[in-house]
């Protein structure tokens, strides 16, 4: 893309010229949640390595997990996984050429935000022994 001729080609319009809609937000959130999961899996791999090889590393990971920032990390990971999973189902549905009607896409976008948030509360409650 360095030479002039190649850079004349139009790029896809980016973030700055769109009117805000919930479908746009869901699209960006899909990417951000994917990136959060990427980082989360790498951090969780450190926890796994500690569990397998290095009790001192595990103790450090555990201390972080039990701190307030650690709780925020876990809630963020859980919400991101739930959002990415549910919004991914929208993407799979679109791959079949369905669900593109404006009203449908707007409704499913809201639904994914609401359902991901409610399911996060359930998972966190159950995970911290609320059901036990």
């Amino acid at each position: 893309m360095a030479d002039g001729a190649a850079s004349e080609r139009p790029l896809s319009p980016h973030l700055q010229i769109w009117r805000f809609t919930v479908t746009l937000a869901a699209s960006i959130t899909h990417r951000i949640s994917g990136a959060v999961l990427y980082g989360g899996l790498l951090l969780m791999a450190l926890w796994l390595i500690g569990l397998a090889f290095n009790p001192a590393l595990f103790a450090t990971a555990s201390a972080i997990i039990h701190s307030a920032p650690g709780f925020i990390l876990i809630v963020g990971f859980v919400w991101s996984l739930l959002f990415h999973l549910m919004n991914g189902l929208r993407h799979l549905y679109w791959d079949y050429g369905r669900g593109f009607a404006l009203k449908t896409a707007t409704m499913t976008a809201w639904l994914v935000y609401i359902a991901a948030t409610l399911a996060t509360a359930l998972i966190i409650w159950a995970g911290y022994g609320g059901g036990a």
């Binding site: 969780m44 103790a59 555990s62 997990i65 995970g127």
Partner: peptide, 16 residues
Amino acid sequence: SIWFLFAIVSALTADY
């Protein structure tokens, strides 16, 4: 992922 979510939070907060 659904299985993972229900399993991992209690595993992460467990002792060694």
